[in-house]
Nucleic acid binder design. Sequence first.
DNA 1: CGAAATTTTGATCACGTTCAACTTCAGTGG
DNA 2: CCACTGAAGTTGAACGTGATCAAAATTTCG
Lengths: 255, 255
Amino acid sequence: MTVTSRLTRSVGESSPFILRLQQYASLSDADIAGLQAVVERELTIRKKRDVVLEGYETRKLHIIERGFAARYKLLSNGKRQVLSILLPGDIIGMPAAFFRSSLYSVTTVSDVAVQVIPLIKFLDLCRRIPSLAIAMLWYTGHELAAYADHIVDVGRRSPLERVAHFLLELHSRLLAAGCAAEDSFEMPLSQEIIGDLLGLSAPHVNRMLHQLKAENLISMDHRQVTFEDREGLRLLARFEPLSPTSLPAGVRRLA
Amino acid sequence: MTVTSRLTRSVGESSPFILRLQQYASLSDADIAGLQAVVERELTIRKKRDVVLEGYETRKLHIIERGFAARYKLLSNGKRQVLSILLPGDIIGMPAAFFRSSLYSVTTVSDVAVQVIPLIKFLDLCRRIPSLAIAMLWYTGHELAAYADHIVDVGRRSPLERVAHFLLELHSRLLAAGCAAEDSFEMPLSQEIIGDLLGLSAPHVNRMLHQLKAENLISMDHRQVTFEDREGLRLLARFEPLSPTSLPAGVRRLA
DNA sequence: CGAAATTTTGATCACGTTCAACTTCAGTGG
DNA sequence: CCACTGAAGTTGAACGTGATCAAAATTTCG
């Protein structure tokens, strides 16, 4: 098995979600055990299924173990806006569960393995383990930063910059989740979804991808994306990685 | 004094921030006292000053008591993207304080009165009062929903829809903060800022505002915006208000 | 292997930016 | 109180861009 294309983790590693929370606050083994105890069940969802539907009530959190999903909103004019791509370690139903009815839908892009946690139990755990609540504040803080980046993308960046920025961001997140190689990754996303994510038409995404290839910044083979000139790409996209461990030291100690 | 134009609250009301947290979780008088105890000081910032600067470290939260501010990012191509308009009850430095250096800048649009809280003390309080931590999770959850709406706006709505949607959303938030009348409000935002918020050029914002006036949906006098046909506006913008109290009943009880 | 989804290509055209000039408004000091 | 100044709003013309639509080529998957 090449590291390059794996979407799975090897046995023994802890879940990408735990890994992520650990970056935000130090959790004891007991905390982690408590977290695992509230997991209701694990299941695998086939690709192209809706996990959360706009307008329906959700009282479960789904933590992604493997696979890709997309959070999106359908507009009454028939257009679709994809809000974010969800990767291993992300929580499906995160903002959704906070409202009486979900504001957005989530659909699987590939087959997705999830852990299901009832919201009530999760909040209860947050009350008992303040570190967990604070780690969750950081989690949502990062989510917020990602959304902010997305707003900048769609609002003020050129189509070429958007596509380049998207590739870099996705890669950086996959890397953090242990699902990508240094300079390449597998991307099971159609150009239509990318368009709906970046506010572009699918044909234009196609043109931009070709332009990136023409400028020898990337190459693509099947669903494998390879950065041929990562620095050039970063310059073009003006990409600034969101280091998850960039907490002020004093604060980090406290959390 | 008309209710219409006031940006201040009458004495005796509690702060818009407390008011807001109360919607997310029930806080005891002791909790509120604790919250007030961590307030380091209050101050008023003149209009057009930067409160938070991108790249600098922030370890203070500024809670807005009165006035308008804007969170924004300057791009290297000279463009600017405004991420959100901050109103009374909002926290300046919310995502910022969570990173080693702030990712975005915040500038005041009008004179702004704030309460300053050191981040460390605030997090410490969250550890001691789990309800507060959970209320903050809801706060960021709503912030996330607002950002998501913004992405949809910029990504897939027409310029006319964007402007209409923006007016309705701003009004709804001002109403919740007790700073607007039923059908009108004061808006000290230049068309340039609105453009940078919605991903449009200032002249185009101007045209769209005129079109809304021409269709008898709104009227404007100085900085006073009045909805002449709120329903028509809502239909045009496909606006769905974000009710802050729309928590699932069972969850609400727990929180 | 066949059907469906996705990618690719091209032509046309509406839309919104850009830029510049002009007007109006708001705030300030004489 | 008015004149002055800079900021904000308004208008128009020209241009470039990315959407749209449709059709063909290719890939994916049952």
